[in-house]
Write a protein that binds this DNA or RNA. Structure first.
Lengths: 167, 167
DNA sequence: GAAGATTGAATGCTCAATCTTA
DNA sequence: TAAGATTGAGCATTCAATCTTC
């Protein structure tokens, strides 16, 4: 239990910083991407995951799990992408219930055009301000949070047995 | 410039992890806070900043800068809080253009009741999964991102001059 | 006219209900 | 009946226009 009298705490300093960075950067990156590549962040996210998938193709529900969007929202965004000719929606031949979203040639082209804009934005606004160990700590730590894993046991380093676990 | 052929990159791994953690945790913490304290995250955020301010009072625009909400949104949220009796809205006696939001006794009470719920949620879902050095790296690094500061010069540590700067 | 704040209209997003196939 | 997906209605959020005071 928390101290019921306390209203804030630096137990939550890292979380507060994460919230503020998200609030500051997401609208900025979204605006830059729209202006320079005519594409909102949600589109980019979907196109990127399709690009990374085998045969550039995913079931809607699998897409929903990978992407930073709700499953319902994915339906709407894919609608927009189909209208724009960047994605194809087809029924899964193996299972008539599910739909497959496939990246089109035009979609891959638009993604390639948008990628440098987004990646450079992330560099300028985010990565550039972090030391290399900080980037590693953020990536490792936040992925552990996502997985819900406990913190690992402590490690010791020595010349003859680098990174060995204690106990 | 980025490699125009690349579409993803682990230059953005830390950013991607931040986006995913935000997308996973914010709705969860919001739901817990609503259920256990009858209060959405936006309310908590505003009440917390008022509580931290001198005399528990802030101009609307100052509140908008501190809080993780747009300035427009703050007007609506304060409307709700005034209706709920948790905040008072008055005209600034020093400047008739600006409005002051003040935390009421009831508002402070509701905040104290909600705080353990939120803080425990942050612990369980976030902090608990991070090592202490990771928490420090996240806090320091993300606050540097927020400030837009460059990475600091390297430091050396020795018994007689701990943490001294090189160069 | 500019600063501070609010509001109406339009957009974005989510929840629950629905539809279809397995 | 359950899994997969979409849709309509209702809420949340933002943008631009407005109002008031300096």
């Amino acid at each position: 239990m928390s101290d019921p009298g306390a209203v804030s705490s630096d137990r939550s300093a890292a979380w507060a910083a994460l919230l503020r960075v998200h609030a500051a950067l997401v609208p900025r990156l979204d605006r830059e991407l729209r202006q320079a590549a005519g594409m909102p962040l949600a589109w980019y996210d979907v196109l990127l995951e399709l690009h990374a998938a085998p045969e550039a193709r995913l079931r809607m529900s699998d897409l929903g799990e990978r992407v930073v969007l709700s499953r319902t929202r994915v339906s709407r965004v894919v609608d927009e992408l189909v209208d724009a000719g960047l994605v194809l929606r087809e029924t899964n031949p193996r299972d008539g219930r599910s739909a497959l979203a496939t990246l089109t040639k035009a979609g891959a082209r638009r993604l390639r055009a948008a990628a440098p804009v987004y990646l450079d934005g992330i560099d300028r606004h985010f990565t550039q301000h972090l030391t290399d160990p900080e980037q590693k700590a953020i990536t490792r730590g936040l992925n552990r949070v996502l997985a819900g894993d406990p913190i690992p046991p402590p490690t010791v380093r020595s010349p003859d047995s680098p990174g060995q676990r204690v106990r």
